[in-house]
Structure formats: structure tokens, C-alpha cells
Design a protein around this nucleic acid. Structure first.
Length: 428
RNA sequence: GUGGUUGUAGCUCAGCCGGUGAGAGCGCCUGGUUGUGGCCCAGGAGGGCGGGGGUUCGAAUCCCCUCAACCACCCCA
């Protein structure tokens, strides 16, 4: 298409009415998270590259091949944040956290990952997320999950599954990997090509393989929890018990390990059927994260939910109901010299709370009425020579086609009768 | 990064075994007598077929390259 200048791959423009969806989701997140005593934090969209390398882990996919990194004019390597946690931890460390002090934070904004775009996957995507930092208590994990579910309820995403797992501590995790590798290695020839690769890159994923040939082998695989310490098992069961006691349904997913190195103990994901291959709408877990300049890593638990995917889920569940965008009042003008006065009237109406589109072009009434209709206006207020000379205005209800004359004094009352519902909606 | 599918008016798409002039629906603009929308009718604007190269007397239609989109693998939001 000649003359078109496409946005960068994996990014895009969000127009109304979809933009209203975004506002809805962001506001709902703020409302819900604040009821859990979390406070908003806005961190920069770019950080020093080292923050992510150290924080997320050198060997992760994210760091190795997905970061948007560049050198700034001072020769520093900066990176567009691929996730929110590292920046939050950096901010908290920067502000100072006393021993024993807790901070509960939520954030919202764009993240960047240089992956191949697909359904539900963009290079610039958006997350609302939370972090509870400074506590090593399993019930904080449980509450964090409750908060996520609360949020999903609030935005109408009810058709979902909560997957839960524990990674134990880093040392334990290593030994579990060794156990798994040791178990699968002898069967290498019998595993599918994907699993043969996974044996080298990510043993855990073999547990998730759908290939029939691999199933018999997987079924006999060692049970992960058997190789965790008593403490880790206790931690996880505390989380699970707390959730059960609140009546939360979850599935234990042994192969759920997540891609970032900083996680330990609890990890979880919420998935939604019908979103295609990218079915996770939210995910998170407990972590221990070190950032440059910190002597000791900070421990916390948090999650992030993908706004794009929440919108997809809402669409899937018939929750997607974009708000009416049109103005309440279309102010038509039929007199060449009267446009400035029309603008003045429009200002008065706006001050009273009405949404007003004031016509500034001179065109036929027919054209103006068409435009009023096209804009989705509730009423048209017409000012022509006849009206101006007599100090009135013609009011037409575009739904009922009822039409009368009003003075400026009676106009407000007429508007309330004819667009009251719309104003009520707008005020919410 | 790999693979599959796709790329024609603002949008959805037809045309594509090469051969007069590039189409439809929707949308948009104007008009259907003098100041009135949504329905209907009539006109009109708007693309040269993602881009580049090649084959051919001749290509939107064939070949190559490239870009982009979508979907999938991988991973995850």
C-alpha cells in the first residue's frame, strides 16, 4: 500500500473503542490492588542492561535473545524493560528498605521482548503487575494469588485455570534437574526429537510433552517433590492449604517452572482456554532477586497479567463491551457569522458536563445532521438564522426524532431529559 | 531464530491455468428543490494490484528476491 508507514513489527496502535478496554482494565487493577494495600509505582521503561542480566539471569531466553538493548550517547548499555520485577526491585533498593520492612507495589505499563509476534504475543506488550517485597511468608504468596483471582473476577475473566508448582530452592532445583536428566538420558533414543533437545536445554519441559511415544517414559519419571527439602515442601503446602481454605481451585503442574532464574518456591500461572498457543493470561511466583549495588538479594512474591491477553479473554467470554464513544450533543450551525457564539455555547454546555461536538464548518443542514448521526450523537442542537434572531435553539432528539425549541435557560433541562442516561454512564 | 499461510480501493474480499480499458459489498462525499440524520434512489471521489527484479509481444495473474501480517514451534504476558 503506497504511502503507508507501518508501525514496528510486534507493535501497534490502539484506537477507540479498544482504548476504553485498556482504561477499564487499568482502573480495575488500581481499584483491586489498592484494596490489598498495594501502592502504585511507576518505574522507567528503560534501565541499565546489567540490571536485567543480573536480575533475570544470564542464561534465560529473555536475556540471551529477547532484549532490546542499545547504547546511549554516553556509551552505557540500556535496555527496554522485558519485565517489571527487576525495575521495581531496583527502585525499592534505591529508595532503601529496612530489615524487616515490607513494601507492596503495583505497576502497569509496556514491556518489550524481541520475539516473533504471534497471537497474544507482541514485542511491545503491557502488563499490570504487583510485588510484595520483604517477606518470606508463604501466606503472602497465597494472598497474592487471591488478589490475582480477585482481579480476574473483577474484569470478568472467570473461565480460567490456576496452575501451581514449587521450584524449591536453587540448590534443590539443580539436583532435581540432575535427577530428571539422569532418568531420561538412558531413554534418549526413544524420546521424540523435541524431547531430545529438551534433555539438553530444559528437562522440565519433557514432563509436558504431548507426544504419545514419550508418555510411558514420562509416567515413570521421578516425582519432583520427593527431591525437595522438608522446608520447601512445608512452604509449598502452606501456600496450597491457605488457598484451599479460601476455596480456591488449583492444579499442581510439576512441569511449570517459568523462564526467569529468580524464581524459587512458589510459581503459578493462570491460563485461559481459547486464546491459542499463548494461553497464559497471568503468571508469577516467589523470587529472590539481586540487583547491582545490593549486598543481599531481596525476596518477594508477585505476578503480572498481560493486558492484551486479558482483552482477548474478555472477548472470548463475551465481556468485551466497548463504551459509547459519541458526543451527547452535536451543535449544528447554519449561520456563517455565528460560529464563535456557537463555540461559546458549547463551552457552557461542557462546563455543565455534556460532551459536545461543535460544528465549525459551513455546510448544509443535511450534511450536518448526517454527521451528527455518524458521530453517534444523542441529540442535535441547531442554531440558524431563525433561532439566533429569536434567541432560541432547535433541539432534536436523534433517537426519537422528537424536536422542539429551547432557550438557553431551558436547554439544560431538555438535555437532561433526553440524554440523562448517557450522562449517567459517562460519569461512572 | 525456524516453519506454514497470506499481501488487490479506508474495510472485507473477488479476479489470478498471462491478453483491450482493474472489480464487488461495506464505508466515505454530493444530490434527490428552498433549514434536518438514520431507510431508499442517483451520482461521485478513491487503488493500479506490498516492494524490487526477471520471463514474455503482453503480468494483479508465471519465476526469483525482499518486506510485512497472521498462525505455529520455542518461550511466555
Amino acid at each position: 500500500m503506497a504511502g503507508k508507514f507501518d508501525p514496528v513489527p510486534g507493535t501497534g496502535d490502539i484506537w477507540e473503542p479498544e482504548a476504553s478496554e485498556w482504561v477499564f482494565l487499568e482502573n480495575a487493577a488500581r481499584d483491586v490492588f489498592q484494596t490489598y494495600s498495594y501502592a502504585e509505582l511507576r518505574t522507567p521503561v528503560m534501565e541499565r542492561t546489567e540490571l536485567f542480566v543480573r536480575g533475570i539471569g544470564e542464561d534465560t531466553d529473555v536475556v540471551q535473545k529477547e532484549m532490546y538493548s542499545f547504547e546511549d550517547r554516553g556509551g552505557r548499555s540500556l535496555t527496554l524493560r522485558p519485565e517489571g520485577t527487576a525495575g521495581v526491585i531496583r527502585a525499592i533498593a534505591n529508595a532503601g528498605l529496612n530489615p524487616g520492612e515490607e513494601k507492596r507495589i503495583f505497576y502497569n505499563g509496556p514491556m518489550f521482548r524481541g520475539e516473533k509476534p504471534a497471537s497474544g504475543r507482541r514485542r511491545q506488550f503491557h502488563q499490570v503487575g504487583v510485588e510484595a517485597v520483604g517477606s518470606a511468608n508463604p501466606f503472602v504468596d497465597a494472598e497474592s494469588i487471591l488478589m490475582l483471582l480477585h482481579y480476574l473476577d473483577r474484569v470478568g475473566v472467570t473461565n480460567r485455570r490456576l496452575l501451581l508448582n514449587t521450584r524449591g530452592l536453587p540448590e534443590e532445583r539443580k539436583s532435581v534437574e540432575d535427577v530428571l536428566s539422569g532418568y531420561f538420558s538412558p531413554y534418549t533414543d526413544q524420546l521424540c526429537a523435541d524431547c531430545q533437545r529438551r534433555l539438553q536445554t530444559n528437562v522440565w519441559r519433557i514432563l509436558d510433552c504431548k507426544n504419545e511415544g514419550c508418555q510411558p517414559i514420562i509416567k515413570q519419571a521421578p516425582v519432583i517433590s520427593d527431591y525437595l527439602s522438608q522446608e520447601s515442601r512445608q512452604f509449598f503446602s502452606d501456600v496450597c492449604d491457605a488457598l484451599s481454605r479460601v476455596g480456591v481451585e488449583y492444579e499442581i503442574a510439576p512441569r511449570l517452572v517459568r523462564g526467569l532464574d529468580y524464581y524459587q518456591h512458589t510459581v503459578f500461572e493462570v491460563i485461559h482456554d481459547g486464546l491459542g498457543a499463548q494461553d497464559a493470561i497471568a503468571g508469577g511466583g516467589r523470587y529472590r532477586l539481586n540487583v547491582p549495588g545490593l549486598k543481599k538479594p531481596l525476596e518477594g512474591v508477585g505476578f503480572a497479567a498481560g493486558t492484551e491477553r486479558l482483552i482477548m479473554a474478555r472477548q472470548h467470554e463475551g465481556q468485551y463491551q466497548p463504551a459509547r464513544m459519541g458526543p451527547d450533543v452535536y451543535l449544528a450551525n447554519l449561520m456563517e457569522g455565528a460560529i464563535p457564539e456557537g463555540l461559546a455555547l458549547a463551552e457552557k454546555l461542557r462546563n455543565a458536563g455534556w460532551r459536545v461536538y461543535a460544528e465549525t464548518e459551513n455546510k448544509s443542514l443535511k450534511a450536518q445532521m448526517r454527521k451528527a448521526d455518524k458521530l453517534g450523537a444523542m441529540v442535535a442542537v441547531i442554531r440558524g438564522e431563525e433561532e439566533v434572531n429569536r434567541g432560541v435553539v432547535t433541539c432534536r432528539d436523534l433517537t426519537s426524532s422528537e424536536q422542539t425549541e429551547c432557550t438557553e435557560a431551558t436547554l439544560h433541562q431538555w438535555l437532561e431529559q433526553h440524554v440523562a442516561g448517557a450522562v449517567g454512564t459517562a460519569a461512572c
